[in-house]
Write a protein that binds this DNA or RNA. Structure first.
Length: 309
DNA sequence: ACAACGCCCTGAGGGC
DNA sequence: TGCCCTCAGGGCGTTG
């Protein structure tokens, strides 16, 4: 389940093994892998052929490689997607969906492998854009963004992440904290696993109303998100120094270092209380019932917080 | 406008 | 052995 740290590791691998290469051929083996490319698989292949990949970029869980100025190939790994560099002629993976070969025969080939087909590749214009979450008064940056992900907010590791704007959005919103963390238009790169980890570290229950968070609490939560992501990056970032673009969503970090996710009935690493799993939004939330007590129910539906001045 | 739900998809694993 | 059910869940289109 690739979240920001895993996707960043893939970006680094692409930067090393794909950027600067010129594409010779593209083979789409499953149409669903290019479903976001509305013009279809043949058009996708035709428009890539002969172009050269620029530097690998990332926004949240999205990756892209610029081609000619003005357009780019965008990738999302979904749940199970992998981008691999394999030697030419290596046996096809069972769930190989797209193969991109390079003019340099020694460069191997770039493969998109995806069991569950939630991920995919597509071609898009790349525009100068005022990014979601940016202050209108912020100085214009020279950054460009694929048009279809202009709504994706910056991630918490981005130096330009606007913490004040994020906190203001939390105060304004009538939702709960975990929903907000998974809302990629508010903050990007956080998925179910890192949300549960950061909430455990911050001792916040997943149903805590966002409007009740103080600014210091928001800052603390963001710091925990950054810490857990940096820890995952430190582990995952070490294993891509081969011909593989490491993509495996399971960076090894999972088994060893998770404090909340997947630990139902196991003792909380802080207080020993058995951890709980609760069904939540067609998925699961893991938390410690003692360290992360549920918020007290409101007498009535909370009105949007009004603050004078 | 905003919040929340349902669907897309495949394979692993459990129960019987 | 095999069948059916549940679970994993990011993002987007639809509904409320």
């Amino acid at each position: 389940m690739p979240e920001l740290p895993e996707v960043e590791v893939v970006r680094r691998g692409l930067e090393r093994w794909a950027s600067g290469r010129t594409i010779s051929e593209v083979e789409v083996l499953h149409p669903r892998a290019v479903r976001r490319h509305v013009a279809g698989a043949a058009d996708f292949a035709d428009r890539l052929r002969g172009h050269r990949f620029g530097p690998a970029r990332r926004r949240g869980k999205y990756l892209w490689l610029p081609l000619d100025p003005g357009f780019c190939v965008l990738a999302h790994l979904g749940m199970s997607g992998q981008l691999l560099i394999q030697p030419s002629g290596a046996p096809d993976e069972k769930h190989l969906r797209i193969r991109i070969t390079f003019e340099d025969p020694d460069a191997g080939e770039l493969r998109f492998v995806d069991q569950r087909t939630f991920g995919g590749l597509s071609l898009h214009p790349e525009n100068l854009a005022l990014h979601a979450g940016d202050r209108p008064t912020a100085p214009a940056t020279a950054e460009t963004l694929p048009d279809v992900i202009a709504h994706i907010a910056r991630d918490p590791l981005d130096p330009a992440f606007d913490e004040a704007a994020f906190h203001a959005a939390l105060r304004r919103s009538r939702t709960t904290i975990k929903r907000a963390l998974l809302d990629q238009s508010l903050i990007s790169g956080v998925g179910n696993i890192y949300a549960d980890e950061a909430l455990w570290r911050a001792r916040l229950h997943y149903e805590r109303p966002t409007a009740s968070l103080t600014r210091p609490r928001t800052t603390e939560l963001l710091d925990h998100i950054r810490d857990v992501m940096h820890a995952a990056l430190a582990v995952g970032g070490t294993s891509f120094d081969s011909l593989y673009v490491n993509v495996n969503g399971e960076s090894g970090y999972f088994e060893r270092s998770l404090d909340a996710y997947g630990r139902a009935d196991e003792p909380c690493r802080r207080c020993g209380t058995p951890m709980r799993r609760r069904p939540w939004m067609n998925r699961s939330s893991y938390y410690c019932p003692r360290c992360q007590p549920p918020p007290r129910p409101r007498r009535s539906l909370p009105a949007a917080p009004k603050r004078a001045g």
